[in-house]
Design a protein around this nucleic acid. Sequence first.
DNA 1: AGTTAAACCTGGTTGC
DNA 2: TGCAACCAGGTTTAAC
Length: 276
Amino acid sequence: MPELPEVEVTRRGIAAPLLGARVQALWLGKPLRWPLGHDPAALAGTLVGEVTRRGKYLWLPLQRGPQAAGGLLLHLGMSGSLALRADAGEPGPHDHFDLRTDRGTLRLNDPRRFGAVVWSPALDRAPAATLLARLGPEPFDPALTSERFHAALQARRAPVKAVLLGGEAVVGAGNIYACEALHRAGIHPALRADRISRPRATRLLAALRLTLARALDLGGSTLRDFTDVHGASGAYQAEAAVYGRAGAACPRCGGLVRRVVQAQRATYFCPGCQRR
DNA sequence: AGTTAAACCTGGTTGC
DNA sequence: TGCAACCAGGTTTAAC
């Protein structure tokens, strides 16, 4: 699930209430993608700083008095979501991490356990820096110009859909928003990235930004598991033009939406208005 | 070097 | 109804 909009919706839900919260305890359930890499008890008494996001990762900095105490790098994987509650109760079968603070419990629910919570001494040091090293520019970074985006596409011979998922030209798009952005831009998902003209690259970047911004407005997409920190579902999936709509009519041209498989992932597109 | 497949894990849906 | 097969929002790691 969680693509950039869902992760950002989550960040917005926890940043203010957790700023300055005092950590009382960390609780770990079943193993996630990687071990925490730190003694949970050693983090009790630290204060949470400002939660930030990079790509689909969240960073919760911790400090002990004036001293930085590293932080937690979180990823929601395919099925993860975070909840923040004053009285969280006992963890359920798919709850695998709690950050218990004096402002409530931040709880990770992740049925598939592709998610991760990793302690790192700093955002720019291992292991956090290693995990973030390959990430391309943020989609809303003004420094990501259409020139730079086009240049990044020119460097890749893979299908543009796969390049969007790769996150090197730009981060944030997962399977839903890559399909939706390509549809909005009128670009065929199988088109080689290096065959995309400057004008079309400009159009694709704009389409991606519009798609992600719209999803943010709607609280993200909820296919099954995702909810924001208050338990609310996203609403974007209801207005998806192509994702998950194989055989249905394209809202723009009325053609039939097709489902194909690219790089082991389902791709939905409209052959009528997405051109090579 | 660069692209592709396999791996991690659980549960819901589909089809025989 | 039962059960096997397939599918799902991601990303690292290993293999061509």
